[in-house]
């Protein structure tokens, strides 16, 4: 017989500590992230202008942004055009930075993990290549403005001799040019992020069973064959993961496109959707239009959710799912047989 004391000890439950330990996270998350998220959704369906007592306007904000507005509605036309121009910039800059970045990172990752290549100073190269990623984007923008700026005294223009009036060389206008500015942003994005992607891909390659590479080497495969037949197929999942997270990151691209200009006017040729959202709600820009900003945010949210769902789908455990499917089939089969009675042999 258990004594009363023993019974009491047996019934000690630690469950309440679980709740206590996770409580601060959820309280803060609800106040500072979930509530703002709901607010964003609510604001997306309300009129623009002041901040209180906004009228419910249904899908009007989305219509203005997505569908072509009436020809005499200049304000809506402006919003619509700006959004699509910025969206176009976002896509162009993302594609132009992702393709070279993934190619370069993959090449470097393969080199760094190649058993055959003797390479002293590997650590040094990794440290240097990751370094641009930790530098404040504002400083990076300032640095590149002084290197590739429009003035006659930017480094690139001085190298061309523009600082000497006698030569009469016209300065290059990289920042105000449409495509030159875009290419520069792409370059900066690659410069900042290739080290990060490289390290991620490297840890992916290191996760591949080493004996596969050794077997390939013994069988006489050259580097190219090893890459296309072993590394690349086995790296597919992590590559797709990198692609999708980079897309989500690309939709949020803000700092460099927002800051790569002198003066106070935003460079429209490189402004992204995130800049659109920011401009529409930030106090420092003429008229806050929370409705449009929120509607654009909701559009971004929907796209991000789809991409995020794809990430989970890619990363799902295929073997486990296959097994579960087989088991279900076997159960079905067994049931069918049981029903069929004695007819089957």
């Amino acid at each position: 017989m258990a004594t009363a004391a023993q019974k009491r000890i047996k019934s000690v439950s630690y469950a309440k500590y679980g709740y206590i330990f996770i409580l601060p996270f959820f309280v803060v998350y609800f106040i500072f992230s979930l509530y703002p998220l709901l607010q964003t959704f609510i604001l997306a369906f309300h009129a623009n202008g002041g901040r209180t007592n906004l009228a419910f306007v249904g899908l009007d904000n989305f219509k203005t942004i997505l569908a072509t507005p009436a020809e005499n509605d200049f304000k809506a036309m402006g919003i619509h055009d700006t959004f699509w121009r910025y969206m176009k910039n976002t896509v162009i800059i993302w594609v132009g930075n992702f393709i070279p970045q993934i190619a370069l990172s993959l090449l470097l990752a393969v080199w760094f993990t190649d058993l055959r290549v003797k390479m002293p100073g590997k650590g040094f190269f990794k440290v240097v290549m990751y370094m641009p990623n930790i530098i404040t984007a504002a400083s990076v923008a300032g640095l590149y403005l002084s290197l590739f700026g429009d003035s006659s005294y930017s480094v690139i223009n001085m190298l061309r001799g523009c600082n000497n009036p006698e030569l009469g060389v016209e300065p290059l206008k990289i920042i105000t040019g449409v495509w030159s500015a875009r290419v520069l942003v792409m370059f900066i994005q690659v410069w900042m992020w290739f080290g990060n992607t490289m390290i991620m891909l490297m840890s992916g390659i290191q996760g591949i069973n080493e004996s596969l590479f050794e077997a390939a080497e013994i069988d006489g495969a050259n580097s190219r064959q090893t890459f296309w037949k072993i590394t690349f197929p086995l790296l597919k999942t992590i590559m797709v993961y990198t692609l999708l997270t980079s897309m989500i990151g690309g939709l949020q691209m803000f700092d460099i496109p927002f800051m790569l200009h002198t003066g106070n006017v935003i460079n429209e040729n490189i402004a992204t959707v995130a800049v659109f959202v920011y401009q529409m709600f930030h106090k420092n820009f003429a008229k806050p239009s929370f409705g449009y900003s929120a509607a654009a945010s909701v559009i971004l949210f929907v796209i991000t959710s789809i991409l995020g769902a794809l990430v989970f789908w890619v990363q799902r455990d295929k073997d486990a799912m296959e097994k579960a499917k087989k088991r279900r089939q076997q159960i079905k089969e067994a049931k069918r047989r049981a029903k069929g009675g004695g007819f089957s042999i």
Binding site: G18, Y35, Q39, R51, K283
Partner: peptide, 29 residues
């Protein structure tokens, strides 16, 4: 505890919500 599973699923689900999406609501808050 009972809500352990749901709590973890919630954290997984919100992991990828970008700052930019909540920014308008954040400003309003």
């Amino acid at each position: 505890f009972k809500l352990k599973g749901p709590a973890f699923v919630f954290i997984l689900a919100v992991m990828m919500v970008p700052t930019q999406v909540t920014a308008v609501g954040f400003m309003n808050l």
